[in-house]
C-alpha cells in the first residue's frame, strides 16, 4: 500500500512498519535481542544483558527510574513557550499508527464524554455542553517522540476548569483517557492541572477536523505527542496507573518535554 508522505523527512512507510511490528507481542519482546548485532557490544555476548527479556526488563526499570527522577527534578508548572500565528506549520501533519482514512469518525450527535472515577458528578457530557466551557487558546510546538515537531493553534477549555466542574478529587494521582479507536493514555495530576493542558475542540479556530482528533483531543504542550490523545471519549480520575497504548510498549511513561 502506498502511503502519502505526510511529513517532510519522515518515511511514512517505515513509520507504519515500525508501528505494525509492535502489534505482535513476540516481535516486541524480541526488540533487544538484535542489540548484540552492534559489533562494539559483541564482547558482552553470553552476558544476561543481551538476553531480550532480561534486557527489556532492565531498561524498563531504568526508564521508570528516570520517570521518578524526572517527576522530582523538573518543574511541572513551567509554561511551554507560546508562538506567533505566522509560526503555525501548514499543513499541520496528521500522525497516528494508522493512516488518515482509518482515523475514527465520531458522530457529534451521539457523542458523549464519559466521566468516571473519583469525581462528584459522573453525568456524561454532550459536545454542546463541552463547547460552552470558557475558551482558551494556545499556539505551541507539538514535539513527536520520533524527533520531528510542528507548531499548531489549539482552542478549547482548560482541563483544570473541567475537573473543577465535575468535582474531581485533584488529590488523585492520575487521569486516564480512552479514545474512540481504542487508544489509551494516563497522565499525572500535576500535568492535568497545568494551565496549558487543554480539552481541545478547535484547531486554528475551526472545529477539529477528523485528522486532528474530532471531537476532542487533550493538548499538553509540556508532553510528547503520544501523551496528547485524540478522539477522546472517556476519562477516569484514578489512583491506579492504567498505562497507555505506547507506554505499555516501551515509550517513557512521563514523556515530559
Amino acid at each position: 500500500m502506498r502511503i502519502r508522505k505526510l511529513i517532510p523527512g519522515v518515511d511514512a512507510n517505515l513509520l507504519i512498519k515500525d508501528a505494525g511490528k509492535l502489534m505482535q507481542d513476540p516481535m516486541r519482546r524480541s526488540f533487544l535481542r538484535g542489540a548484540a548485532s552492534l559489533g562494539a557490544l559483541a564482547f558482552l555476548t553470553g552476558c544476561d544483558i543481551i538476553d531480550g527479556d532480561a534486557a527489556e526488563g532492565v531498561l524498563r526499570k531504568i526508564s521508570e527510574l528516570i520517570d521518578g527522577a524526572q517527576a522530582a527534578l523538573v518543574s511541572r508548572t513551567k509554561l511551554a513557550p507560546t508562538l506567533k500565528e505566522s509560526d503555525i506549520t501548514r499543513p499541520f501533519p496528521f500522525n497516528a499508527y494508522y493512516t488518515e482514512d482509518e482515523a475514527p469518525a465520531v458522530d457529534p450527535a451521539t457523542y458523549r464524554l464519559e466521566v468516571s472515577g473519583l469525581v462528584d458528578n459522573k453525568k456524561p457530557w454532550t459536545l454542546d455542553e463541552l463547547h460552552a466551557l470558557p475558551e482558551v487558546s494556545q499556539i505551541t510546538r507539538h514535539v513527536c517522540v520520533e524527533g520531528w515537531s510542528a507548531i499548531g493553534s489549539w482552542q478549547g477549555a482548560q482541563l483544570s476548569e473541567f475537573l473543577k466542574r465535575i468535582g474531581a478529587d485533584t488529590r488523585a494521582k492520575y487521569i486516564w483517557f480512552k479514545c474512540a479507536e481504542g487508544y489509551t493514555n494516563t497522565i499525572d495530576m500535576p500535568t492535568a492541572l497545568h494551565p496549558q493542558t487543554q480539552m481541545t475542540f478547535k484547531f486554528d479556530n475551526k472545529i477539529l477536523p477528523r485528522a486532528y482528533g474530532f471531537p476532542m483531543k487533550i493538548r499538553m504542550p509540556t508532553k510528547l505527542g503520544y501523551k496528547n490523545p485524540k478522539y477522546v471519549v472517556a476519562m477516569e480520575v484514578t489512583n491506579t496507573d492504567h498505562g497507555g497504548y505506547w507506554e505499555n510498549q516501551g515509550y517513557n511513561w512521563f514523556g515530559g518535554l
Partner: peptide
Amino acid sequence: NASPLFDFTFPRSIALGQWLGGAIQWHFA
C-alpha cells in the same frame, strides 16, 4: 531513523534497539 534529518537512514544492523522505543530506552539509560 524514525525521522531522518537527511536523505538517508542508518542500516538497522549497526543501529541499536530494533525500534524507536527500544532505542530511546538504550539512549536514556
